[in-house]
Design a binder for these strands. Structure first.
Lengths: 186, 186
DNA sequence: TGCATTTTTTGATTTCAATCAAAAATCAAC
DNA sequence: GTTGATTTTTGATTGAAATCAAAAAATGCA
């Protein structure tokens, strides 16, 4: 969904604010496998996935691990860069053709400073992010690979159609071979 | 540190706001091993550790896993309960004698609604939380148990003096026996 | 101080997933 | 449609940590 539509859909933002924000938004469509954000960058942009699917990953030497997947209407936030002015270890890769709306955090913050609605909206996004991260840690620590796989199948079946097995396996914390075997025994 | 002192120390909050907040704050000192927040509760409080150390954990049957540790001036936030009105799976346990300042999220939000400084402060806390969670996932997925152990020794050496080995081991994602062995070889 | 309980360490064995390797299947380009 | 590249599956082996079990050490408290 178009980010502006999405904002309005959230009911927190007025037309006035969304229009101010829209001036700062840049859009770009990425092809499959293209990097939306390279690793070890210090981008201070917010990445909103308008269409398609991407994955947030960390890569080093031969290791490549998927941190999480970004589906439509989700936001990728290089926290380290934006809030700590450090290079962000993670990159974002398009898994399908993906349309991304980008806005510099600086602009976002400027508008938010004068508008409590946007600040509350930011907070809501962060709460969502925290919820996901907390659930993620819980799953990584409490479930067996098989259980994590089952959870994923029921919650994000569509990812299996869009992401290569290796990316999914590293998200689940197992190797591609193990995932292939889990999947084989139904 | 006293929560009010800490707020002032952050420079975002005025005396006026901190005083309004202080009316809603309740304090309690917990003894070692006492539960600050039981698991599967639906408390809508913010828990600020004024003094001591606690751990956030999940327990079920024979499993007991430490999600993270809370040291002085850190906040425990039952996200599921506060923002999703669900029972929060996690509990908080005092590892040492611990003084906790509690404030109902409702009150916090009321004051925040009228005060952009507090809202920004909330955001800062959330950013910190996100940073920790992201780093956590990274460590869990990229480091070997030995590396995670070394990281912890250098970053939180004091935890080793306060938490039982089992709690630390489950935080690191290994068994107590494995941690004991890691520790033995230098 | 001495006893009981809890915590930590050490030892032996097992197990599950990683690794290494290669075949099969799928996909993409010509 | 054929070829080549990539992705997925299958097979054999290895290895690191879990598990099971018990001893040793530390802690608490009467």
């Amino acid at each position: 969904m178009d980010i502006i539509q999405y904002f309005k859909f959230q009911h927190l933002l007025t037309d006035d604010i969304t229009e101010r924000l829209s001036k700062f938004i840049h859009r770009k469509t990425y092809t499959k496998k293209e990097l939306i954000l390279p690793t070890d960058n210090n981008s201070k942009n917010i990445f909103f996935i308008e269409q398609g699917t991407a994955r947030v990953f960390y890569a080093k030497k031969d290791k490549d691990v998927t941190l999480y997947f970004l589906q439509e209407n989700k936001i990728g936030l290089p926290v380290d860069s934006i809030f700590y002015n450090q290079v962000c270890k993670f990159g974002i890769e398009a898994l399908t053709e993906t349309r991304v709306a980008t806005i510099a955090y600086e602009h976002w913050a400027t508008v938010a400073k004068e508008n409590i609605g946007l600040l509350q909206f930011s907070q809501q996004l962060m709460v969502e992010y925290i919820k996901n991260a907390t659930d993620r840690i819980y799953h990584l620590k409490f479930q067996t690979p098989k259980e994590r796989y089952d959870t994923m199948v029921s919650e994000f079946p569509s990812i299996f159609l869009q992401a290569p097995l290796g990316s999914i396996a590293s998200y689940l914390g197992i190797t591609q071979e193990t995932l292939s075997r889990l999947r084989a025994k139904k």
